[in-house]
Write a protein that binds this DNA or RNA. Structure first.
Lengths: 167, 167
DNA sequence: CGCTATCCCGACCTCGCTGGTAGGATTACC
DNA sequence: GGTAATCCTACCAGCGAGGTCGGGATAGCG
């Protein structure tokens, strides 16, 4: 289990908002009804998306949310990062790019200095792989997938040999 | 946080066992001391590895564990799967290959039949990506990485652009 | 034989986080 | 002013992660 329901609900929320176009905002109530999700919980989730600058809100009656950017420019690495708070595959991973901006990854394990844990190599690869996979999927693609309803073919995922070939 | 400490400790355990060669078994006590990990907890972790056929045990005094295969033939997808029990990125993912053996992935969400959740596309890609990344890393490679100790260069992981290029 | 090192196994415990609720403020359209 | 919506903070129950404990079975060794 990599991700929590925050990611699941948050992505669904973005899809619903994106399906509407930016002409008028979509209320959380409408999304909660459409996706059968708890409204109060959605409120907290959408706050994460707003804080990350992915949606914009309009308060008051007939208010709601619109996408802050075009769906083509919203990629899932940013979305999941905003929702989950981190993309580290392991507890001891700290993403530290405030120092020199080079995006290096630390392993905060106790005796790291002595031995240099080899698991770091593994988790680094996993993190890179996941981030890439997420970055290659745009919100536009998900909306498109949801819209043209692939009646029954969608049952079968891509074969394990082939890397998902981009948006 | 994708993985728990079971994966972390289990991989370290395999590395320690693999470093020794198969001439004589390695005791958990030795591993617990070397890696500074709780012995009682390691016992439960190694049980998972044994059940998956990755290590073999010898009981009694001077007993311990040896690898069941050559390190080159032990790949991390199998290891992490044995330790974590599942590689599903989301709760609603059920890996069901008992039916027809085709390895299709189900999403057990409530109204899946009606809409076909688009998030399934996303999580499927992530799962495939992670599985591939893990499968491309062998235990032999981790042992090698640990052994030739890269005194200080190991601080910097592989750049984010490049997919890890095989074992 | 008995000691001791080791694997084996199940019960138990604690703590933090996930998932969700409650209740209220604030804002804006009509 | 009513009402529909966003916002915000506190609260709560359940569960799994991470780890401990105690005891059993097993095998080398003097």
């Amino acid at each position: 289990m990599f991700f929590t329901t925050k990611a699941e609900y948050g992505v669904r929320l973005l899809i619903e908002v994106g399906r509407q176009g930016n002409d008028q905002p979509v209320s959380l109530k409408a999304i909660a009804d459409a996706e059968n999700l708890p409204l109060a919980y959605l409120e907290r989730i959408v706050a994460l998306l707003k804080r990350a600058g992915l949606v914009q809100s309009t308060r008051g009656a007939h208010g709601g949310y619109v996408l802050a950017r075009k769906p083509e420019d919203i990629h899932m690495d940013e979305v999941v990062l905003a929702l989950e708070g981190s993309l580290a595959p392991m507890e001891c991973f700290v993403d530290d790019r405030a120092d020199d901006g080079s995006g290096r990854v630390l392993c905060s394990h106790h005796d790291d200095s002595g031995r240099g844990c080899a698991t770091k190599l593994l988790w680094t690869r996993v993190q890179v792989g996941v981030t890439q996979t997420l970055a290659q999927t745009s919100l536009a693609e998900l909306i498109d997938f949801q819209t043209r309803q692939l009646p029954r073919v969608g049952e079968r995922p891509a074969p394990v040999q082939r890397t998902p070939t981009h948006a």
